[in-house]
């Protein structure tokens, strides 16, 4: 079997704060193959965005990568220096950020911001770069691309800006795209356009994508595989179909139950009781045990390891669920 494009092994990203050590990412392992979309799901504080930043080497002090490996195309990029990392960023790995209002520079034209990527990462001359930019803008569905190159970000709407950000991410032909909540700031009709665009681009270019989102519905429509995170740990991973249809971890099950379904409308939603615990004071045992209906004394003693349950599903639970949803 071909080696995965990205292979995360026991990644640890820690933040030293005055309130104690925050293990935002605590031993996360998963891989992404070329041409595949992997969804990272979880609630706020799950550590999903920090994983994205860690891969790109964008974790600023007081945060640091405290352990583990980030193997991209066979080499560990977590140990690279800033200069080498700059060659990876934008060229090999690109990122689409959540907020299209702040991820573009307001004082430069769209054309200049797009051109920057090509200037840094290719040997094309100016005319060739311009043609490539225009073609890219057309690809992401912006009409009148040639005149739009000279426009500033504030002249675009939110959906258009996100299209530009995606265009920039795709320009250099990156092999891995990390999309951090790419449609959360957008309206639902625009969201479906952007999601379609991203999926088409992945299919056409054969790039891999990590889709970070809190929205299980988006993941279930987009991703081939899903990684569910809770308090910095992977609690479940597997093929999207199986995770959605028959989750093995009570947290995944709880998340799915919390979504109001249009098919069967119940009087009450099944809710996960309580809130996410303070990540600084987790201690031993399973971090979900305080909210889990199936918790046993063992859950407080020993932290469960991620282990195969059935089919493609791996879950970190002492008592994985057996029934299907």
């Amino acid at each position: 079997m071909a080696e995965p494009l990205l292979d995360l092994r026991e990644l640890q990203t820690h933040f030293q704060t005055f309130g104690g050590l925050v293990k935002a990412v605590d031993g996360v392992s998963f891989n992404v193959k070329a041409g595949e979309i992997v969804g990272l799901v979880g609630e706020s504080g799950g550590g999903k965005s920090v994983i994205g930043f860690s891969i790109l080497g964008l974790v600023d002090p007081p945060g640091r990568i405290a352990g583990g490996e980030i193997r991209f195309d066979g080499r560990d990029i977590s140990k690279l220096g800033e200069r080498e990392m700059r060659n990876v960023r934008g060229r090999d790995i690109a990122m689409v950020f959540q907020d299209p209002m702040t991820s573009l520079n307001p004082v430069y034209t769209i054309g200049r911001q797009m051109d920057e990527v090509l200037r840094l990462h290719t040997n094309l001359d100016e005319a060739a770069r311009r043609i490539r930019c225009i073609r890219m803008l057309e690809d992401v569905g912006i009409s009148g691309a040639e005149s739009r190159l000279d426009a500033y970000p504030h002249q675009f709407s939110g959906g258009m800006r996100q299209r530009v950000v995606i265009a920039i991410a795709l320009l250099a032909g990156s092999r891995l795209i990390i999309a951090d909540e790419p449609t959360t700031a957008l309206d639902v009709t625009v969201q479906s356009q952007i999601l379609k665009l991203m999926r088409r681009q992945v299919q056409e270019t054969g790039a891999a994508m990590i889709l970070i989102t809190h929205d299980l519905a988006v993941v279930s429509e987009m991703a081939d595989r899903v990684v569910v995170l809770y308090c910095g740990k992977v609690v479940e991973r597997g093929l999207t179909e199986e995770v959605i249809r028959s989750p093995a971890h009570p947290y995944t099950r709880g998340l799915l139950d919390s979504i109001p379904r249009i098919t069967d409308r119940q009087r009450r939603l099944r809710q996960i009781p309580g809130t996410v615990p303070d990540i600084r004071t987790l201690g031993a045992g399973c971090s979900f045990r305080g909210r889990c209906a199936h918790a046993q004394p063992l859950c407080a003693e020993r932290s469960p390891e991620l282990a195969p349950v059935r089919g493609s599903l791996d879950a970190a639970c002492h008592f994985p669920l057996q029934e299907t949803l």
Binding site: S192, A217, V218, S220, E221, I262
Partner: peptide, 8 residues
């Protein structure tokens, strides 16, 4: 139809 859904 634009709303994403977990139910295929």
């Amino acid at each position: 139809s634009a709303a994403p859904n977990v139910d295929k």
